[in-house]
């Protein structure tokens, strides 16, 4: 089961924690200089090192399945759409995914549910140790792990949190927040965004600095600053509800109605209403279930987040059997799945 179908801590604000490590093999050319034969050896060797993982050969994968992996946040979009030799090793129980022959020879990713960066890091580090048992990983005492792109030198680690920040978004607080965080070496990015509005109010907060800071310090810093963001968001949610309880209840109720009673729903309309319903679940929780927001108490973040991933085009297409769907067919199918998943 993928991360979004699991339980986790603080899922009201943090959907997932992710740690990525970039690793390369000493003396093996990278990127466009890597030969097909060299790539094959890396893929084979990784298979030996990662005997607890299933291998997915992306060269032989149909494009819809490959795109679905990216929509589930399990591989990068570049990896999904590339046409060079590459493979994914996955250990779903450990939430660990290793892309072989991405930009770097190995990109180890662990994506865990909720707020659990340390767990994600320990899973990623465990996979690294297995690779180090088979390959001599490129490392320099002054520069750290040697990466294809010099921006990743050092720990070559990106730790990130996927955060749901609807109340801060509504307050217009995201841009100032992003500016503040960038001053201390963190990056905030909108996900599912078009232009300046992140339709799903989902943001990825990650470390930018990788040299001169340890893995542990990186995680501590990201966590410390994220705690502040979480508290601000919760405060803003309370204020929003206290200021206009009827209006909030109206928006949430209607959004739930739309998700459970539509017959044709676009990805965009889905996401806008998904935000209101998820916010509603959180506000009900914050108010000690006293608030009637027209959303059944049994609706969980797990179900909501699964509906988010399963409403994306490629995943939706796969779930319907994999045959090609027109956008209209997808919109019809999305609505019927939503009625099934969320229906009262």
């Amino acid at each position: 089961m993928s991360w979004y179908g699991k339980e986790g801590s603080m899922t009201g604000v943090v959907l997932s924690s992710r740690v990525r490590l970039a690793r390369n093999v000493e003396g093996v050319p990278m990127g466009k200089r890597l030969s097909a034969d060299g790539a094959e050896k890396l893929i084979e060797g990784a298979g030996k090192a990662l005997s607890d993982c299933d291998r997915v050969d992306f060269r032989r994968l149909d494009p819809v399945t490959a795109a679905a992996y990216a929509e589930e946040h399990l591989v990068s979009a570049e990896f999904a759409s590339s046409d060079s030799p590459r493979a994914l090793y996955k250990n779903e129980g450990e939430d660990t995914y290793i892309m072989v022959c991405e930009e770097d020879h190995f990109r180890i990713q662990s994506i865990t549910r909720g707020y659990s960066l340390a767990e994600a890091y320990s899973h990623a580090a465990a996979a690294e140790a297995k690779l180090a048992g088979v390959f001599r990983l490129a490392f320099d005492p002054e520069l750290g792990y040697l990466t294809h792109c010099p921006t990743n030198l050092g720990t070559a680690m990106r730790a990130s949190l996927m955060m749901f920040l609807p109340a801060l978004t509504r307050q217009g607080a995201i841009a100032p927040l992003a500016r503040q965080l960038s001053k201390v070496g963190l990056t905030v990015r909108g996900m599912y965004g078009e232009g300046s509005d992140a339709a799903a109010c989902l943001y990825q907060i990650s470390n930018q600095v990788t040299l001169g800071i340890t893995e542990e310090e990186t995680i501590k810093k990201l966590t410390r600053l994220s705690d502040t963001v979480i508290n601000e968001e919760l405060k803003a949610r309370r204020e929003l509800f206290e200021k206009a309880p009827e209006d909030v209840a109206d928006v949430c109720s209607r959004a739930f109605g739309t998700l459970t009673h539509s017959r044709v729903i676009s990805c965009r309309e889905f996401m806008e209403n998904w935000v209101s319903v998820r916010l509603g679940v959180s506000i009900a929780e914050l108010s000690g279930k006293n608030a009637d927001l027209g959303i059944p108490e049994t609706l969980t973040y797990k179900t909501l987040d699964t509906s988010l991933i399963e409403s994306q085009p490629a995943v939706l297409t796969l779930l319907s059997g994999g045959g090609e769907l027109s956008p209209r067919e997808r919109d019809v199918l999305r609505s019927s799945r939503l009625r099934e998943m969320l229906g009262a």
């Binding site: 320990s122 580090a125 465990a126 690294e128 140790a129 180090a132 048992g133 990983l137 490392f139 320099d140 005492p141 002054e142 520069l143 750290g144 792990y145 010099p150 921006t151 030198l153 050092g154 720990t155 680690m157 600095v209 990788t210 040299l211 001169g212 800071i213 340890t214 893995e215 310090e217």
Partner: peptide
């Protein structure tokens, strides 16, 4: 790019978790 600092962090495999 990195501000003239030297590496601090884990060593390959040796201090893996």
């Amino acid at each position: 790019i990195h501000g003239g600092v030297t590496y601090k962090g884990s060593q390959p495999a040796k201090d893996a978790p």
